[in-house]
C-alpha cells in the first residue's frame, strides 16, 4: 500500500471519527437538555410543603377553616375522629389494618362516622404536609380515601424521597385522578390553609402525637389510648345509647 493511499485512508478515518463525535455530541446535548428540563422544572415547582401563616381573628374562624374528611352516615350516633400524619408508621398501621375493620363493621352498620384530620409532624416528617395536601387534591375528584390508602401503602417509598411530588402524582394516576388537574393542585398552595388549620386545631385539642383518636357521642368526647379494633369497638359500644347498639 502506498504512502499516499495510507494518508488518504487515515484522513478518511479521521473524517469518520469527526462525524461520529459531532453526532455523539448532538445526542448528548439533546439528552442533557430534555432530562435537565424535566428535573429543573419539577425541582423549582411552587408546591407548598409546610404550614403557612393563617390570618385568623378568632377560634371560630379556625374551626370554620379546619376540615376533616368524613366517611359514613352524617346521622351516625358516634363519630370517630383521627388526627393522622401520612408519614407516621403508626398511622399507616392503623389505616391499613384497623380502619378497614371500622369501615366494614361500624361505618357500614351506620353506627359510626369516621373523620380524618391532618396532623403532619413536619419537624420529623418533612414530606407529611405535602402528602396531606396531595390527599386533599385527590378529594377534588372524590378519591380521598383511595388516595389515603395508597399513600399509606407506599409510605416506605415516598417518605425517604427528597422530592416526593412525582410519586404523589403517580399515585393520583393510580387511583384514577386526572393527572393534569392533580399536578396543578399539588404545585400550588391549594389546601395549605386547611391542612395548617387542621394542625392548629389538633394542637389546641391537645394532640401531640399520631395517630390520636377521639370518639364523640351524645355530647361526650373520649380520647383513646389503644388503637386496636377491639378496644375501639368496646369504646364505641360503651358510648352508644342502648337503642343504637
Amino acid at each position: 500500500m502506498s504512502r499516499g493511499e495510507d494518508r488518504r485512508q487515515a484522513r478518511a478515518a479521521d473524517g469518520d471519527m469527526k462525524k461520529f463525535y459531532y453526532i455523539f455530541a448532538a445526542v448528548a446535548v439533546v439528552g442533557i437538555g430534555v432530562v435537565g428540563f424535566r428535573v429543573s422544572s419539577s425541582m423549582f415547582g411552587s408546591a407548598v410543603s409546610a404550614p403557612i401563616e393563617l390570618d385568623l381573628e378568632n377560634d371560630a374562624e379556625l374551626v370554620a377553616l379546619a376540615q376533616g374528611v368524613a366517611k359514613g352516615d352524617d346521622a351516625a350516633p358516634v363519630t370517630i375522629v383521627e388526627f393522622g400524619d401520612y408519614q407516621c408508621p403508626g398511622c399507616g398501621s392503623f389505616a391499613l389494618s384497623v380502619k378497614p375493620q371500622i369501615d366494614g363493621s361500624l361505618v357500614a352498620s351506620g353506627q359510626v362516622k369516621f373523620v380524618f384530620y391532618d396532623f403532619p409532624l413536619i419537624s420529623i416528617h418533612p414530606n407529611a404536609f405535602l402528602a396531606a395536601r396531595a390527599a386533599r387534591c385527590a378529594e377534588d375528584e372524590g378519591k380521598f380515601w383511595e388516595y389515603h390508602e395508597v399513600l399509606f401503602r407506599n409510605q416506605n417509598r415516598w417518605s425517604t424521597a427528597s422530592m416526593p411530588a412525582s410519586a404523589f402524582e403517580d399515585y393520583a394516576s393510580e387511583v384514577g385522578v386526572d393527572a393534569g388537574d392533580f399536578a396543578s393542585c399539588l404545585n400550588s398552595d391549594a389546601y395549605a390553609d386547611v391542612v395548617t388549620a387542621n394542625l392548629e386545631l389538633g394542637t389546641r385539642m391537645g394532640v401531640n402525637g399520631t395517630p390520636t383518636i377521639f370518639i364523640n357521642a351524645n355530647g361526650q368526647t373520649r380520647r383513646l389510648n389503644n388503637y386496636d379494633f377491639q378496644s375501639l369497638n368496646e369504646a364505641v359500644q360503651m358510648m352508644l345509647a342502648p337503642g343504637d347498639r
Partner: peptide
C-alpha cells in the same frame, strides 16, 4: 430520566 423520576426529581 426514569432514575430521576424514581428519585422524585421529575414531574409525573
Amino acid at each position: 430520566f426514569l432514575w430521576a423520576h424514581n428519585a422524585g426529581l421529575t414531574g409525573p
